[in-house]
Write a protein that binds this DNA or RNA. Structure first.
Length: 292
DNA sequence: TATTTAACCTGGACGC
DNA sequence: TGCGTCCAGGTTAAAT
């Protein structure tokens, strides 16, 4: 599942293979893949053809390529199963190929492939960021907080905002407007490392505990980034179609019934927000007062 | 206003 | 073999 390390791996691939190239043609094969481009597929195509793609940027799980000389960017979001692939034009179409983009140099195509179509691509105007107005992000990304490996991420601000939340810590970690880039997998891994149960109320955490947790979040993300991301079912791949291998070192996520790597207690799975949480009942003690 | 829930979607796993 | 059901989860509109 694409979280920050996976999206960053894809961004680096786009910077290498796509930035600086001029769009020759765009084929939208599935309208749902461009549903967030409100002006429609035809508008997306007409505005992209002839545009030169600039630097590849990312915030949280969103990535985008600014269009040279224009105040707008091509946004991509991978959702849960999206892939942005750079493929030879003569390679057969993928089963779930939804958008194909060719370039004037006649080189490899950019393809958006998505089994579950939660992701998509769109064009969006660039707007100044609230905290650093000299920086620009697409308008649809403006509400997304910086991610913890962003040099401009404000640790103190995050701690203050987190400890005002009247919700559980895991729910807060998944709130992209508070901290971006963390999904279900890395939230569970970070909480396991920090010895924190995900149902612990955020507002009762001490500042030092939040600082320690943030350190674990950063460590997990950086380790996953170095490994090229996580892969469980081949749904996540980089632009060349290769999978990461961070899943080999996951300590909690997906390990229900297996011994905790720290204490040997079987990892437990519990229902959380229509998905699952994995945690050690010995290392990560649930709060005494469960939320109703 | 702040927080929580449900819906979106497809294919693999599983039980019968 | 075939059918039905469950599950995975990022985002956001709708509900509370």
């Amino acid at each position: 599942m694409p979280e920050l390390p996976e999206v960053e791996t894809v961004r680096a691939g786009l910077a290498k293979w796509v930035s600086g190239r001029t769009v020759a043609s765009v084929e939208v094969r599935h309208p749902r893949a461009v549903r967030r481009h409100v002006a429609g597929a035809d508008d997306l195509v007409s505005r992209l053809v002839g545009a030169r793609l600039g630097d590849a940027a990312r915030r949280g799980k969103y990535l985008w390529l600014a269009l040279d000389g224009r105040d707008e960017a091509l946004i991509g979001h991978l959702g849960m199963s999206g892939q942005l692939l750079v493929q030879p034009a003569d390679l057969p179409d993928e089963k779930h190929l939804h958008v194909r983009m060719s370039f004037t140099d006649g080189g490899r195509e950019l393809r958006f492939v998505d089994q579950r179509t939660f992701g998509g691509v769109m064009l969006d105007p660039l707007v100044p960021t609230v905290d650093h107005p000299s920086q620009f992000v697409p308008a649809q990304v403006a509400h997304i907080a910086r991610d913890p490996i962003d040099p401009l991420f404000d640790d103190d601000l995050f701690s203050r905002r987190l400890r005002k939340r009247d919700s559980a810590i895991k729910r807060a970690l998944l709130d992209q407007s508070l901290i971006s880039g963390v999904g279900n997998i890395y939230a569970d891994e970070s909480l396991w490392r920090a010895l924190l149960h995900g149902e612990r109320p955020a507002r009762l955490l001490k500042s030092a505990t939040v600082t320690e947790l943030l350190g674990h979040v950063r460590a997990v993300l950086n380790e996953a980034l170095a490994a090229g991301g996580t892969s469980f079912d081949s749904l996540y791949v980089n632009v060349n179609g290769e999978s990461g291998y961070f899943d080999r070192v996951l300590a909690a996520y997906g390990r229900e019934g297996e011994p905790c790597m720290r204490c040997g207690t079987p990892i437990r799975r519990s229902s959380f927000m229509n998905r699952s949480s994995f945690w050690c009942p010995s290392c990560q003690r649930p709060p005494r007062l469960r939320r109703s």
